[in-house]
Write a protein that binds this DNA or RNA. Structure first.
Lengths: 386, 386
DNA sequence: CACATTCGGTGCAGTCGGCAACAAATGGGT
DNA sequence: ACCCATTTGTTGCCGACTGCACCGAATGTG
């Protein structure tokens, strides 16, 4: 978003990228609106749009019949024939999706595999994409692939340093996948890509300072957007909330001596107290809501207290305008949204709480695929005609 | 640093700023080095430098006698005649400094006043600067002033929302001071400006992802640099570590029920246990080192534990490459640096701890003046010839 | 049907950085 | 003392890009 254009040609790249980004992340809009939002000249926008059209990246169609005087301005939309592949390997399956520019999922498959290795993932993805290419994606242009990995990914080269649930360690999936698909490949942490998706297309849309926390079966991960930028930190490992020491006002709230946040705020504990063996988030939510055993309410309240303290800390340190909770953390909040939000705000400075919103994640299961695909689009947005 | 240049003229602004920033933050260097570091063409750099010289912002002087073949390249240095004023109102005094481009403090005064109001600060600063103008700063060009306020400052307009130690609330100091000095004025939180100074000229030089925590008599504040940018958050209030709930593995470490970090990691508690009434940081450090009472060591260890847990959390969430500790937090660390650093690293993921450095603050009392002045320079760097 | 309004298209001008050729300044070798 | 290689500043030209002014197109209004 904010590369500095030091050269005159760079200005063109920047501006082409800005226009394409606008219709990709913000949806279709008229040329006139683009002119107003970019602050560029009409003639400049005209030129930029026609170049993007020539390159097949955007489509123009007739304007909406508006009731206003004046010449109607054609609507510019991102081409849905430009596609990036999103991949999310998990412990029991691989999820693959084809996402078009604009952020809609065109095709999507979940392929059951138990704890797949790198070669297995690459093979399955390559076969699936090959099949799509001559079928659902006929006539489309594939521009890249993104892989959302449940683990620690080194930002500089995309090497998976550690993915405990997959059993990967110092694994390079970018190289093999790039070879197999003949496409550029981005690799990133799943929570980071979830953050990206929620910020661009979900609950944190339009927010420049976002804290995102996701609770899954394997723990708590998250991501940050500050100054409108996704924050990776020095190595790209930022967002590991699950490993932070939890703040508990009452020592009786602790369950694991020397434990960390994800030991205390924990999905399995909720399943246990609800008497469930395994369940998806919807089932868990219903079970918790329907439970009559007071122990359930006690455990939910305990986890809510601890989570609220963590979020209060995050608010004081980062001053976000939006906190988004995904997975079972959203369930904890939804048990009584207003009370939860108030408790978080109460722990933050007034001036910070004033402008703090909280939300449960808006995107469903597509979140990671959309985020991963968007990371793959990033190269295109940086230099649309390159 | 990273404004996007959407126009051709904007490219020139960006590049002029980049060159000026280089010699301002990085020190004097030859044209040849500037060419290499900016990636710009020789002829472009030549033009940019001569424009900056014409504007009196940089000076060129004869090259160092290097032992290499080839035409020597003249050294470009930021002009020390370009000055910004840094101001730091405290509870017992106002500190004022004149800082030249390049970051050196030219003049500096500490004026004792008890808990000054806005009008008092403005008056004193105006008189002092007026005196300097016809004396120490004769022939200099003043380009702005920055005020480091111990309190919450709204980023969007510089209004001081709350500065408890000064008794200010919703106070506008930018307006009156701008009028009195006839200069643009920047207002910010003191810890933010300290962060800025340590990052540019101090311990975190060259680090793109920095966590800075400062411990003073009034509490614990801090700042963040991520992706090379100073992070303010949605309202500019980010960095309030002091108000976060502390994480304590052992409940016996708690001293204040429902208290926050700055209640537990606390300068006054150190003074008390050391039997001191009041002392500056140097005296406190000596007293703690010389103490024989085992209660002193116990309290130091307790505060170190809590601080290390907080820093470990910060490392996991933000993945910084450098953590800088100022004020009495530096003293706590210095009591046994290696042990402290190891404890912080132990609490972070291996991959994060691998590349995590810690340091005590490198700049002394000048820190806030340098940071505040640098904030005032920002306008100049964004558009050097504007 | 004339007019106001809004917006796209075209040609021109201004600005900027890249490039290539040349000049200048230094060290090394004979 | 002299020539050459190397590095770097300087100059003039070129290409690229955006902004602007003007014109034409498309729509609603009276």
């Amino acid at each position: 978003m904010s590369e500095r254009a030091t050269t005159v040609e760079g200005v063109r790249r920047t501006n082409l990228g800005a226009v394409l980004r606008l219709v990709h992340h913000g949806g279709p809009r008229s040329r006139a609106v683009i002119t107003a939002e970019t602050g560029l000249n009409r003639s400049t926008v005209s030129d930029l749009v026609s170049r993007l059209t020539d390159a097949g990246l955007v489509c123009e169609h007739d304007p909406d019949p508006t009731r206003r005087v004046g010449r109607p301005s054609p609507i510019v939309a991102a081409s849905d024939k430009v596609i990036a592949v999103g991949v999310n390997p998990e412990i029991d399956a691989i999820e693959i999706g084809a996402v078009s520019l604009g952020g809609t999922v065109r095709v999507r498959e979940r392929i059951a595999v138990s704890s797949p290795g790198v070669a297995e993932v690459v093979g399955i993805v390559a076969r699936t994409v090959e099949r799509w290419r001559s079928d659902a994606l006929r006539g489309c242009r594939l521009v890249g692939a993104g892989v959302a990995v449940p683990g620690l990914v080194r930002a500089e080269d995309g090497v998976v340093r550690l993915a405990p649930h997959l059993g990967w360690q110092d694994a390079d999936i970018a190289g093999p996948l790039r070879q197999a698909l003949a496409l550029p490949v981005a690799v990133g942490n799943d929570a980071s890509y979830g953050t990206r998706a929620e910020r661009l297309f979900g609950a944190a849309r339009e927010h420049g300072d976002v804290v995102y926390l996701n609770g899954g079966a394997s723990g708590i991960g998250g991501g940050l957007v500050l100054h409108g930028q996704l924050i990776g930190g020095a190595g790209g490992y930022a967002g590991e909330w699950g490993q932070t020491a939890a703040s508990m006002a009452d020592a009786a709230d602790r369950r694991v001596e020397g434990g960390v946040l994800e030991n205390e705020v924990n999905r399995q504990r909720l399943l246990d107290v609800a008497g469930l063996d395994a369940a998806d988030d919807d089932a868990l939510q219903s079970a918790l809501a329907a439970a009559t055993d007071p122990a359930v309410a006690v455990e939910v309240r305990r986890q809510r207290r601890i989570l609220a303290a963590t979020l209060g800390n995050a608010a004081n340190v980062l001053n976000p305008s939006m906190i988004v909770l995904g997975g079972f953390l959203g369930i904890l909040r939804d048990a009584d949204r207003d009370a939860f939000d108030d408790e978080v705000r109460r722990r933050a400075f007034d001036v910070i709480a004033e402008r703090l919103e909280l939300s449960s994640a808006a995107l469903g299961a597509d979140r990671l695929l959309i985020g991963a695909a968007d990371a793959a689009f990033e190269r295109l947005l940086a230099d649309p005609l390159g």
